[in-house]
Amino acid sequence: MATKGQTPSQTVGPYFAYGLTPEQYGYRLKSIAHPTVGGLEAGGGPRILVEGRVLDGNGDPIDDAMIEIWQADAQGRYPGTDKAANSAFTGFARCGTGTDKDKRFIFETVKPGAADEGQAPHINVIVFARGLLSHAYTRLYFADEAEANAADPVLARVPETRRGTLIAARHETDRGVVYRFDIHLQGAAETVFFDV
C-alpha cells in the first residue's frame, strides 16, 4: 500500500542545456551522457543514426526540446539485466534540439534486437521540453521490421490509423543507415504517447 505521494513533474524549461546536455551545447560541465549511446562499440550489430525533429501544433520544429533514448543491444539485452551482455554498452543517450541548424536530434547507436515477450525491436523515447509539464513517453519502431511490428503487442494497443507515428523510415545515406523519426506533439499526425 503506497503511503507517499509521487513528487509532481514540472517542465524542464528552456534552460536545461547547461545542466543536462552541457558538452553538446559547449558549456563548461562534464556530461553524463551524449547523443552517441555510451559504449557504442560494445552494442554489437549494425551502427545506425536516428534523427528527427520535435514539432509543435503549428508544425514548427522546436529547438528547446531534449530527447532521451533507452534501448537493448543488438542481441536484445538491456544493460544491467543480462550478465552475458557487454557491460560497456549503456543503452542510453541524450540529445537536445538546440545545436543542429535544422533543429534535429541526431543519435548514433546500434539497432536493438528484440528483447522479450514477442515485442518487435524498438527504442524507448522520452521527450522533454519547455511547455511539457510532464515528460512524454513514446517508442521508435523500425520500418524494416514489418513482420515483427505486425506481431508486437504494444503496437496492437495503438489505433491502427496512428501506428505509423511510431515507425521510423529507413534511409541509406552517405552517413550510413539513418532512421528518421519526427515527433509531433500535436496535430493530425500527433505521435502516440504512452502512459507508461
Binding site: W70, E117, Q186, E190
Partner: peptide
C-alpha cells in the same frame, strides 16, 4: 502556461504495461 498550448499532447495516452524496457534503466 501558454507554452503548453501548442506543445501539450492532445490525444489520450495509450496504456503501456511496464516491461523490461520500462523497469530497467540507465545506471
Amino acid at each position: 502556461y501558454k507554452s503548453t498550448g501548442l506543445r501539450g499532447p492532445t490525444q489520450p495516452l495509450v496504456t503501456l504495461p511496464a516491461g523490461i524496457g520500462e523497469l530497467s534503466g540507465p545506471r
